[in-house]
Design a protein around this nucleic acid. Structure first.
Lengths: 109, 109
DNA sequence: GTTTCATTTGAACATATGTTCATATATTTG
DNA sequence: CAAATATATGAACATATGTTCAAATGAAAC
């Protein structure tokens, strides 16, 4: 067996924790969109934000933003709670931040 | 500022190396498909493989497999070289393996 | 040079995802 | 309860992605 990409080509099953890969893949697949990255960023910074504020900050359309928010909520990445007229969204899936951190700490990339 | 996902909610720009995120996101978005994962796995194990062998191992249709291979090649993830009748594919983007490794080493997930 | 084998290619189709627009719902305010 | 505000929803459309099939290419064998 030869070397591939600076690591020995061991069995893939040993190399890859398929569970983790699928988790990360799902997360990144879901948030890999400029508007969604923007939303995640705001929520990481501010904890909770209502739709209107998100739209203003990102200069994004209300309806489109709402669609993206509910998609990410459906995917389990965001949560929401109503407070009066406003609905506040927040990061629910903690792994999202962990993936971001993990990528940053990764010395390989 | 409150704690989110066990880390302090610092500025997102500091938290996230956007370059890395985009790289990883691109890679995982591209390979996040059962057949493609299978192909990557085979190539990590074996270094180089021709289309026919890949199809046999994965019990996948020849044409479909070929489409996926050429897509991944277009994306820069795979490379190929002809040897007689056969065309051999191999992992070209080393970051693919690095992402996999990085995920595994990541103690957060 | 015709046949065979390995692979690619492209058209057609199916499905998923993103976007826009107009309308609906829920809450507060007067 | 009517008006205003905040947000969601659904239909229509656009675009991207995955799949299938039939036909085309390119190299080797006869």
């Amino acid at each position: 067996m030869e070397k591939i990409a600076n690591i020995k080509a061991i069995e893939f099953q040993e190399l890859a924790d398929v569970n983790k890969l699928e988790k990360v893949s799902f997360i990144l697949k879901t948030i890999a969109h400029p508007l969604r990255i923007g939303i995640i960023g705001l929520l990481v910074e501010n904890g909770k934000m209502c739709v209107n504020d998100i739209c203003e900050k990102l200069k994004s359309e209300q309806s489109l933003t709402s669609h993206h928010l509910s998609n990410m909520k459906l995917a389990g990445i965001l949560g929401s709670e109503r407070n009066g007229k406003n609905i506040y969204y927040y990061l629910k899936l903690t792994e999202v931040v962990e993936v971001i951190q993990c990528m940053n700490n990764c010395h390989l990339l």
